[in-house]
Design a protein around this nucleic acid. Structure first.
Length: 384
RNA sequence: GGACGGGUGGGUGAGUGGUUAAAGCCAACAGACUGUAAAUCUGUCCCUCCUUGCGAGGUACGAAGGUUCGAAUCCUUCCCCGUCCA
């Protein structure tokens, strides 16, 4: 009996794209969905009010590792759980800390038991195990928890990848069985997603997926991508892996992608994605619009009175000129981050809404074709 | 009028005889960013030329002279700025 009900509404006849509804304890999520990243219990620069009203995000991410170090899962639990703590009434997915195995690779040590992290804040040692990360995520009250995995960098040898993938599978089994036993005493609905690893080796991906299927989880993630490999390779790995995952469960590709890649992943059968790109790039002055990227610091925008994207309905585009945004960026003003992030997230979610709509209408292949050709045109014009 | 202190590349500001076309910071101009150690990081930033190289010339530390193999650095004179004293 799934704790997280996924309702498939439409499937594209000629691609792998699907549209569905994911029912969580904190609202229903229309899929395919993009999940803004809010690592430290905040989507940097954006008040929950804007995430709710302007951006209309249905689910956001938070990070087990970061919140465990500070302020601590027990504090969050005492303060009423993560939703209440950060005043976010909708769904939350928490990453397990598996990505930090990759990104903090100089500060951790992997053993069969788990990962020993040396805090990047003060150097304190902390052991993360498949079981403890489940407990921490349940303390947060996470709607969708992730199993502790080992996210490998690129490139990695076959042997290294195989050993790592097998450990991730063992960890998934341990984590999942601990999760099931914990859920016997918990009333509220939560899900735990295992993560398919296997690096850039298709047979290891297949093997990993088939081993994890035995867990009969409420959803599955594809991890270990966007770690330095060419983008075509990331897509190829998803193309190989997604069809092996249960049709009736949501599929989540972790850590992707650029705006024009979103429909590519959907076309390969992906229902959920997350990425720091819209938020981080926003803060760094890179804005995504329906006509391509805008690097706001470029002098050409100095007296540009147009909105970032005249076709966008976000708060930023409704009220401010490119010239003003450039001024805020150059002046190092805090408001820039907020306005820029509001726009980029709105852009990402608008793309996902268009994708979903086209799947429901049966026009997704045309949509995909159009995105591909307009992106190709843009690349050409950049070449000139 | 006198006594000190000071004038360095777009701005600040190091440098007190030689790997100094001149640190660092800022500005300017580009680039990167993909389950966030990121409101971050990287590059360019006097001019000309080419075989684009830890390349070749030229100009440059208020001005003009001088000392020296060699000067932003030492000397002389002048100009300008600041503080204090009359």
């Amino acid at each position: 009996m799934p704790l997280l009900r996924f309702e498939l509404q439409a499937e594209c006849p000629s691609t792998g794209a699907r549209a569905g509804l994911l029912h969580t304890g904190h609202g229903t999520i229309e899929t395919p969905v993009f999940m803004p990243v809010g690592t430290q219990a905040t989507v940097k620069g954006v008040p929950p009010r804007d995430l709710l009203e302007g951006i209309d995000a249905k689910i956001i991410l938070a990070n087990t590792y970061h919140l465990f170090l500070r302020p601590g899962h027990e504090s969050i639990q005492r303060l009423g759980g993560l939703h209440r703590f950060m005043a976010w009434p909708r769904a939350i997915l928490t990453d397990s800390g598996g990505f930090q195995v990759f990104s903090l690779n100089t500060l951790r040590k992997i053993s069969e038991d788990g990962v020993l992290f040396q805090s990047h804040l003060n150097g304190d040692p902390h052991l993360f195990t498949p079981e403890s990360t489940v407990d921490v995520q349940l303390a947060y009250g996470s709607d969708i928890a992730m199993v502790l995995d080992e996210c490998l960098g690129y490139p990695a040898s076959y042997e290294e990848t195989q050993i790592s993938m097998q450990r991730t599978v063992r960890w998934a089994r341990r984590g999942y069985s601990h999760f099931l036993s914990r859920m016997r005493d918990i009333e509220t609905p939560h899900a735990l997603f295992p993560i398919v690893q296997g690096g850039m080796y298709t047979d290891l991906r297949r093997q990993c997926a088939s081993e994890l299927l035995g867990l009969d989880a409420d959803g599955y993630a594809i991890g270990g991508l966007s770690v330095g490999e060419p983008r075509a390779l990331s897509q190829e790995m998803v193309e190989v892996t997604a069809p092996l995952l249960p049709r009736s469960r949501p599929r989540y590709v972790m850590g992707v992608g650029m705006p024009e890649e979103l429909p590519e992943y959907v076309a390969r059968g992906v229902d959920m994605m997350d990425c720091v790109l819209p938020s981080r790039n926003a803060r760094n002055g890179c804005l995504f619009t329906s006509a391509g990227r805008i690097i706001i610091k470029h002098s050409q925008y100095k007296e540009d009175g147009l909105p970032l994207d005249p076709a966008c309905g976000c708060y930023t585009c409704a009220n401010f000129s490119r010239a003003y945004l450039r001024h805020l960026f150059q002046a190092g003003e805090i408001l820039f981050s907020t306005l820029a992030t509001i726009h980029n997230l709105r852009r990402y979610l608008d793309i996902m809404r268009q994708i979903r709509q086209s799947i429901l209408l049966g026009t997704f292949p045309e949509y995909l074709h159009q995105v591909r050709s307009s992106h190709a045109v843009r690349l050409d014009s950049v070449e000139l």
